[in-house]
């Protein structure tokens, strides 16, 4: 965390015991180290999830061991195992019951893509139906891989998180993309096959015209 001690400038004079930082950073730091996972353990990966929490691998070392089985108390859903047709409505409801800010880890090949179960009953990847932040490969992943995913998610929360959850705002993300288009030379982009990009380019051209 960026901490500024006693900055002396012509606008701001601080006493010795005041610390200035971005509130976002502080909130992220708190959030990332107190992830409460909601284990949505359906199948084999659930056993590895138990192994991750048990004695040898000990998830508590990374500040994410408080498994709570009530979605109201959790902010990290770990979907461990395949999700089938009958289970998906349950998964969606539990996801909606969780409070913001919330994240989702899709653990294992089955949750991420359906894995070996390309059959009539298995949903081919939960990211088709709910948002996913982190995918863990493996069938099932080793506990070390899950721990790595949680560390990566903590890193992501620290980097991208905002105190009012702007990073979850998909409309806001679109605006940021427009800025990228604006920087690039519009003439060098082939947008003939991408209607989204065409819209973006038109908007960028409008913005440039308006500025001029």
């Amino acid at each position: 965390m960026a901490v500024v001690h006693s900055v002396s400038s012509d606008r701001l004079e601080l006493p010795e015991n005041v610390v200035i930082g971005r509130l976002d950073l502080l909130a992220n730091w708190c959030r990332k180290n107190s992830l409460w996972p909601m284990p949505f353990a359906t199948a084999c990966c659930g056993i590895e999830l138990m192994a991750t929490g048990a004695a040898k691998h000990d998830l508590a070392r990374f500040g994410a061991e408080v498994f709570r089985f009530s979605p109201r108390q959790c902010d990290l859903m770990i979907v461990a195992g395949r999700v089938v047709m009958k289970m998906l409505p349950v998964l969606q409801r539990i996801w909606q019951q969780m409070h913001e800010p919330k994240w989702c880890i899709s653990m294992g090949a089955c949750a991420s893509t359906g894995g070996v179960f390309d059959t009539y009953a298995v949903v081919q990847g939960i990211d088709r139906f709910i948002p996913v932040d982190m995918y863990v490969p493996g069938c099932p992943p080793r506990p070390e891989q899950l721990i790595q995913a949680i560390i990566d998610l903590q890193d992501k929360i620290q980097r991208e998180g905002t105190i009012n959850g702007r990073e979850f705002d998909t409309a806001g993300r679109q605006l940021r993309k427009r800025a990228l288009v604006e920087i690039a030379n519009p003439l060098s982009i082939d947008a003939s096959r991408n209607p989204n990009l065409q819209r973006e380019l038109a908007a960028a051209a409008d913005a440039v015209a308006g500025r001029n």
Partner: peptide
Amino acid sequence: GYLHSGFEKLGEHLTFNQYVTVTDRMNY
């Protein structure tokens, strides 16, 4: 049925040696 994944149907499409990977995921 909250974890019915069509093991038996899959068994009709995998060879005898391939299906052993699926049986792993049966009683895991």
